[in-house]
Protein backbone atom coordinates (compact mmCIF):
# COMPACT_ATOMS: atom_id res chain seq x y z
CA UNK A 1 0.00 0.00 0.00
CA UNK A 2 1.38 3.41 -1.00
CA UNK A 3 0.59 6.41 1.19
CA UNK A 4 1.16 9.98 -0.04
CA UNK A 5 2.20 12.32 2.76
CA UNK A 6 3.98 15.46 1.44
CA UNK A 7 4.88 16.30 5.03
CA UNK A 8 7.75 18.60 6.00
CA UNK A 9 10.43 16.52 7.73
CA UNK A 10 10.79 19.28 10.33
CA UNK A 11 7.08 19.16 11.22
CA UNK A 12 7.75 18.00 14.78
CA UNK A 13 10.25 20.81 15.27
CA UNK A 14 7.91 23.38 13.75
CA UNK A 15 5.00 22.38 16.00
CA UNK A 16 7.26 22.93 19.01
CA UNK A 17 8.53 26.22 17.55
CA UNK A 18 4.95 27.46 17.15
CA UNK A 19 4.26 26.49 20.76
CA UNK A 20 7.27 28.56 21.89
CA UNK A 21 6.31 31.48 19.67
CA UNK A 22 2.80 31.52 21.10
CA UNK A 23 4.10 31.61 24.68
CA UNK A 24 6.69 34.32 23.90
CA UNK A 25 4.01 36.35 22.13
CA UNK A 26 1.51 36.07 25.00
CA UNK A 27 4.10 37.09 27.58
CA UNK A 28 5.56 39.87 25.37
CA UNK A 29 9.02 38.35 25.56
CA UNK A 30 11.54 39.37 22.87
CA UNK A 31 13.46 36.24 21.86
CA UNK A 32 16.72 36.41 19.91
CA UNK A 33 18.38 33.26 18.56
CA UNK A 34 22.15 33.97 18.39
CA UNK A 35 24.19 31.73 16.10
CA UNK A 36 27.85 31.58 15.06
CA UNK A 37 30.94 29.40 14.73
CA UNK A 38 32.57 28.29 17.99
CA UNK A 39 34.72 31.10 19.32
CA UNK A 40 33.09 34.00 17.46
CA UNK A 41 32.32 35.58 20.82
CA UNK A 42 28.62 34.89 21.42
CA UNK A 43 28.93 34.50 25.19
CA UNK A 44 31.18 37.54 25.61
CA UNK A 45 28.74 39.55 23.52
CA UNK A 46 25.86 38.42 25.75
CA UNK A 47 27.87 39.17 28.91
CA UNK A 48 28.52 42.73 27.77
CA UNK A 49 24.91 43.12 26.62
CA UNK A 50 23.60 41.98 30.02
CA UNK A 51 25.99 44.33 31.84
CA UNK A 52 24.76 47.25 29.75
CA UNK A 53 21.05 46.48 29.54
CA UNK A 54 20.18 44.75 32.81
CA UNK A 55 19.02 48.00 34.42
CA UNK A 56 16.59 48.52 31.57
CA UNK A 57 15.46 44.95 30.82
CA UNK A 58 14.99 41.70 32.70
CA UNK A 59 17.13 39.30 30.68
CA UNK A 60 17.13 35.50 30.52
CA UNK A 61 19.48 33.25 28.56
CA UNK A 62 19.28 29.70 27.21
CA UNK A 63 22.77 28.35 26.54
CA UNK A 64 23.29 25.55 24.03
CA UNK A 65 26.47 23.48 24.11
CA UNK A 66 27.43 19.86 23.61
CA UNK A 67 28.73 19.63 27.17
CA UNK A 68 29.36 21.59 30.40
CA UNK A 69 27.60 24.44 32.21
CA UNK A 70 30.49 26.82 31.51
CA UNK A 71 28.53 29.37 29.47
CA UNK A 72 25.47 29.35 31.74
CA UNK A 73 27.79 29.89 34.73
CA UNK A 74 29.33 32.94 33.05
CA UNK A 75 25.83 34.43 32.56
CA UNK A 76 24.71 33.56 36.11
CA UNK A 77 27.70 35.41 37.54
CA UNK A 78 26.13 38.57 36.16
CA UNK A 79 22.91 37.88 38.03
CA UNK A 80 20.86 36.90 34.98
CA UNK A 81 18.76 33.75 34.82
CA UNK A 82 20.47 31.15 32.61
CA UNK A 83 19.49 27.61 31.69
CA UNK A 84 22.04 25.32 30.04
CA UNK A 85 21.04 22.78 27.40
CA UNK A 86 23.62 20.07 26.75
CA UNK A 87 23.00 18.42 23.40
CA UNK A 88 25.47 15.55 24.08
CA UNK A 89 26.86 15.57 20.57
CA UNK A 90 23.91 17.25 18.83
CA UNK A 91 25.08 19.97 16.45
CA UNK A 92 22.23 22.46 16.97
CA UNK A 93 19.36 23.38 19.28
CA UNK A 94 15.90 22.32 18.16
CA UNK A 95 12.57 23.73 19.31
CA UNK A 96 11.77 20.71 21.47
CA UNK A 97 14.92 21.26 23.52
CA UNK A 98 13.78 24.84 24.09
CA UNK A 99 10.29 23.66 25.13
CA UNK A 100 11.94 21.47 27.79
CA UNK A 101 13.59 24.52 29.40
CA UNK A 102 10.43 26.67 29.53
CA UNK A 103 9.29 25.59 33.03
CA UNK A 104 12.56 26.98 34.41
CA UNK A 105 11.61 30.54 33.40
CA UNK A 106 8.86 32.84 34.58
CA UNK A 107 8.20 34.73 31.37
CA UNK A 108 6.08 37.34 33.13
CA UNK A 109 9.38 38.33 34.76
CA UNK A 110 11.52 38.33 31.59
CA UNK A 111 11.61 41.02 28.91
CA UNK A 112 14.30 39.59 26.65
CA UNK A 113 15.39 35.98 26.20
CA UNK A 114 18.62 35.28 24.33
CA UNK A 115 19.07 31.76 23.00
CA UNK A 116 22.77 31.12 22.42
CA UNK A 117 22.82 28.27 19.92
CA UNK A 118 25.49 25.57 19.63
CA UNK A 119 28.63 26.98 17.97
CA UNK A 120 28.17 25.84 14.37
CA UNK A 121 27.71 27.87 11.19
CA UNK A 122 25.67 25.17 9.43
CA UNK A 123 22.93 23.21 11.22
CA UNK A 124 21.43 25.78 13.65
CA UNK A 125 20.27 27.89 10.69
CA UNK A 126 17.79 25.20 9.65
CA UNK A 127 15.83 25.06 12.91
CA UNK A 128 13.06 27.45 13.89
CA UNK A 129 13.04 27.81 17.69
CA UNK A 130 10.03 30.15 17.82
CA UNK A 131 12.28 33.23 18.16
CA UNK A 132 11.41 36.76 17.02
CA UNK A 133 14.82 37.28 15.42
CA UNK A 134 17.76 35.23 14.18
CA UNK A 135 21.12 36.94 14.55
CA UNK A 136 24.49 35.66 13.31
CA UNK A 137 27.79 36.58 14.92
CA UNK A 138 30.84 36.51 12.67
CA UNK A 139 34.28 37.44 13.97
CA UNK A 140 37.18 39.12 12.20
CA UNK A 141 39.70 36.23 12.71
CA UNK A 142 37.36 33.83 10.86
CA UNK A 143 38.10 35.62 7.59
CA UNK A 144 36.09 37.08 4.73
CA UNK A 145 35.25 33.75 3.14
CA UNK A 146 32.73 32.63 5.76
CA UNK A 147 29.77 34.61 4.38
CA UNK A 148 30.02 33.12 0.86
CA UNK A 149 30.95 29.66 2.19
CA UNK A 150 27.98 29.33 4.56
CA UNK A 151 25.11 30.95 2.61
CA UNK A 152 22.34 29.13 4.49
CA UNK A 153 23.26 30.87 7.75
CA UNK A 154 23.41 34.33 6.22
CA UNK A 155 20.28 33.99 4.09
CA UNK A 156 18.28 32.99 7.18
CA UNK A 157 19.47 35.70 9.58
CA UNK A 158 18.48 39.36 9.51
CA UNK A 159 21.45 40.83 11.36
CA UNK A 160 25.15 39.97 11.31
CA UNK A 161 27.24 41.22 14.21
CA UNK A 162 30.83 41.41 12.99
CA UNK A 163 32.67 40.95 16.29
CA UNK A 164 36.32 41.55 17.25
CA UNK A 165 36.80 44.59 14.99
CA UNK A 166 39.55 45.66 17.41
CA UNK A 167 41.65 43.05 15.55
CA UNK A 168 41.11 44.59 12.09
CA UNK A 169 44.53 46.35 12.06
CA UNK A 170 46.29 42.98 12.47
CA UNK A 171 44.28 40.79 10.10
CA UNK A 172 43.26 40.77 6.44
CA UNK A 173 39.52 41.06 6.98
CA UNK A 174 37.82 43.62 4.72
CA UNK A 175 34.55 44.98 6.13
CA UNK A 176 33.30 46.42 2.82
CA UNK A 177 33.75 43.06 1.06
CA UNK A 178 31.82 41.39 3.87
CA UNK A 179 28.96 43.90 3.47
CA UNK A 180 28.90 43.32 -0.28
CA UNK A 181 28.94 39.53 0.08
CA UNK A 182 26.12 39.73 2.61
CA UNK A 183 24.04 41.93 0.30
CA UNK A 184 24.48 39.33 -2.42
CA UNK A 185 23.10 36.57 -0.24
CA UNK A 186 20.49 38.49 1.72
CA UNK A 187 19.82 42.14 0.79
CA UNK A 188 17.55 42.50 3.83
CA UNK A 189 20.30 41.65 6.32
CA UNK A 190 22.46 44.27 8.02
CA UNK A 191 26.09 43.97 9.10
CA UNK A 192 27.09 45.77 12.30
CA UNK A 193 30.85 45.93 12.98
CA UNK A 194 31.56 45.90 16.71
CA UNK A 195 33.84 44.67 19.45
CA UNK A 196 32.35 43.23 22.62
CA UNK A 197 35.78 43.58 24.19
CA UNK A 198 36.41 47.29 23.50
CA UNK A 199 32.71 48.30 23.25
CA UNK A 200 33.31 49.84 19.81
CA UNK A 201 30.07 49.73 17.82
CA UNK A 202 28.08 48.12 20.64
CA UNK A 203 25.67 51.08 20.86
CA UNK A 204 24.27 50.17 17.43
CA UNK A 205 23.54 46.67 18.71
CA UNK A 206 21.85 48.05 21.83
CA UNK A 207 19.72 50.39 19.67
CA UNK A 208 18.75 47.44 17.49
CA UNK A 209 17.62 45.56 20.62
CA UNK A 210 15.62 48.60 21.83
CA UNK A 211 13.83 48.83 18.51
CA UNK A 212 13.18 45.08 18.42
CA UNK A 213 11.79 45.22 21.96
CA UNK A 214 9.45 48.11 21.15
CA UNK A 215 8.25 46.24 18.05
CA UNK A 216 7.70 43.12 20.15
CA UNK A 217 5.50 45.05 22.63
CA UNK A 218 3.35 46.34 19.77
CA UNK A 219 2.68 42.89 18.29
Amino acid sequence: MEVKLNTNVLTNNNVAADYNRDLFHKTKTLVINVMSSPGAGKTTLLEETIKKLSKQYRIGVIEGDLATEKDADRIRQLGAKAVQINTHGGCHLDARMVVATLPEFDFEEIDILFIENVGNLVCPSGYDLGQNHKVAVLSVPEGNDKIPKYPQMFMRTELVLLNKVDLLPYLDFDVETAKEDLKGINPESTLLPLSAKTQEGMDSWYSWIDEAYQACLKQ
Binding site: L5, N6, T7, N8, V9, L10, P148, K149, P151, M155, D181, K183, G184, I185, N186, P187
Partner: peptide, 23 residues
Protein backbone atom coordinates in the same frame (compact mmCIF):
# COMPACT_ATOMS: atom_id res chain seq x y z
CA UNK B 1 26.81 31.97 -3.44
CA UNK B 2 25.36 35.39 -4.28
CA UNK B 3 21.89 33.91 -4.19
CA UNK B 4 20.02 37.19 -4.54
CA UNK B 5 22.06 38.88 -7.29
CA UNK B 6 20.32 38.55 -10.64
CA UNK B 7 22.89 37.66 -13.35
CA UNK B 8 20.91 39.59 -15.99
CA UNK B 9 19.99 42.91 -14.37
CA UNK B 10 22.55 42.67 -11.49
CA UNK B 11 19.99 43.84 -8.95
CA UNK B 12 19.79 42.24 -5.48
CA UNK B 13 16.33 41.08 -6.45
CA UNK B 14 16.61 37.32 -6.80
CA UNK B 15 14.36 35.16 -4.64
CA UNK B 16 14.81 31.45 -4.13
CA UNK B 17 11.96 29.59 -5.75
CA UNK B 18 13.35 26.11 -5.17
CA UNK B 19 15.97 24.36 -3.06
CA UNK B 20 14.70 24.62 0.51
CA UNK B 21 12.11 21.81 0.43
CA UNK B 22 12.61 18.84 2.74
CA UNK B 23 9.59 16.55 2.73
Amino acid sequence: FKISICPSCHMPSGKLISGETFQ
